[in-house]
């Protein structure tokens, strides 16, 4: 399931950057279905980098400083909810600058 979510996330990003409005509605529908299945997909782009955030796996391009932030997301963060409890299902793979 995680692979499917990752692919849909990539397709959504491509559709957004290429203004594929024709499939926007379908993608929104698919994303809602994913949410209904208990998954929360988070895109951490532009989030400040914090070493306490265990939900990302950072590839650090420079030395860490107070303004380091996530500049590229290769895979989104995915949480899965079961019996009312969230659990990290996939760490976000990101590049930090």
């Amino acid at each position: 399931m995680l692979t499917i979510i990752n692919q849909i996330w990539e397709i959504s990003n491509k559709a957004e950057s290429n203004s594929y409005d024709a499939i926007a509605r379908n993608l929104r529908r698919v994303n809602t279905e994913i949410e209904e299945m208990g998954y929360t997909v988070i895109d951490p782009l532009n989030r400040p980098y914090k070493e306490t955030d265990a939900d990302i796996e950072a590839n650090i391009a420079t030395t860490i400083h107070s303004k380091s932030k996530i500049v590229k997301v290769l895979k989104p963060i995915i949480y899965q909810n079961e019996n009312g409890q969230n659990q990290l299902a996939q760490k976000g793979i990101v590049i930090v600058e």
């Binding site: 070493e51 306490t52 955030d53 265990a54 939900d55 963060i77 949480y79 409890q85 969230n86 659990q87 990290l88």
Partner: peptide, 11 residues
């Protein structure tokens, strides 16, 4: 301090 869903860890 850790978040129970695994998304935060202070070390």
């Amino acid at each position: 301090v850790t978040r129970n869903d695994g998304g935060f860890d202070s070390g």
